[in-house]
Design a protein around this nucleic acid. Structure first.
Lengths: 193, 193
DNA sequence: CGTCTATTTGAATGTACTCAAAAGCGGTGG
DNA sequence: CCACCGCTTTTGAGTACATTCAAATAGACG
């Protein structure tokens, strides 16, 4: 198993000695998902924080008309999960599914609590991680209320240029909160300019 | 000075002994703002995490047309600030202003770092605080891409019934991401039903 | 190769915005 | 205590942004 990526991810904010590294790794599980497989479905409790080492996940909900709305994508080196379900250990309301064949590392709620107790530095790590996610989400809220669909699309491809080429347009539309048809029109108009 | 509220807020997630309480309080500053006064303006660095003990603050940006978009309201017992500016100690891009005469407690970045070092339990407290904020923001993102303005308004008054009566409609429109005129129309239609 | 899904295109519709004007409301000064 | 001023809210007409529905085309995968 390859833990390089997650250790590098963590070392951005805290330093671990060998014993701590080994202990941390002992608390992880690894798992793979095939394209289109579900990592989490509504009704299930989100038991894990999820770290993607390969592939791409999407975190989405269905509205009352059955349309998909993507909360986030998670590619290599990203953390994901359903925070609400994870914290409260109540049934999730969202799906997490694989857009590509994907490999993840998982840490269970219980193991994470153990980790917080044994290596308090991890409180710091996750505090900073959540802090950063919060900044991203706040910016996204601001974007979605302040900008038009075209502006949001341009921001998306600027911010995630590699992602745009990896995933179907339909998925990007579901992330931007517009219909695939309208995204197609936007792209045509932008191509003209 | 009255620290009851903030201590109660903190005790929801961690327990402090008397010495820790006193130390924590020694790191706080208190400040008052008159209605319409600015707590933070773009260009300034957000030096503090802000806890509201009385009144109401709004956290907003201006778009390129000069329109206001409100990221969050903060009333009594709420934390606010510009997280991005605070973390990176770079100039803020948003305003924080008082909607009513407001009293706040402030903790500076430096004092917060001191606090994390001296009383690591606070890593836990803020980790949980940011985690919860993250849940809220994720839900808000989802709302703004998945629901119509009318649904968002109904959700807002369901979620913050007291707030709706305290602040001008114009401010609610700026929070929902619609024009005040359109909110007026929505309210008229809803009244008919 | 055939099937299934994604993307494009277009016409009709609905949602939300712009601009302008009138009405309501709150604070301030006389 | 009233009158006035400035700001918020309402109302309406015209417009722009985005969706719906349907059909055609293109791509992906077994």
């Amino acid at each position: 198993m390859n833990f390089e990526l997650i250790l590098k991810n963590i070392s951005r904010f805290i330093n671990l000695d060998k014993i701590e590294v080994d202990f941390f790794i002992s608390l992880l599980q690894s798992k793979t998902f095939k394209k289109k497989e579900f990592v989490l479905q509504p009704g299930e409790v989100c038991k894990y924080e999820i770290f993607v080492t390969k592939g791409c996940l999407k975190n989405y909900t269905l509205d009352n008309k059955g349309f998909e709305h993507i909360g986030m994508f998670a590619v290599e080196d990203w953390w994901t999960g359903d925070m609400h379900s994870f914290i409260t250990q109540t049934p999730a309301t969202c799906f997490i599914a694989a857009l590509e064949d994907t490999e993840v590392l998982l840490i269970s709620k219980q193991n994470l609590e153990t980790l917080y107790e044994s290596v308090p530095k991890f409180e710091r790590f996750f505090r900073i991680l959540f802090q950063n996610s919060l900044v991203t989400q706040v910016q996204r809220v601001n974007q979605s209320i302040a900008y038009t669909a075209e502006e949001r699309y341009l921001n998306f491809i600027k911010k995630y240029p590699k992602l745009e080429q990896r995933i179907p347009q339909k998925q990007i539309a579901a992330y931007l909160g517009i219909t695939p048809e309208f995204l197609s029109v936007l792209r045509k108009n932008l191509a003209k300019k």
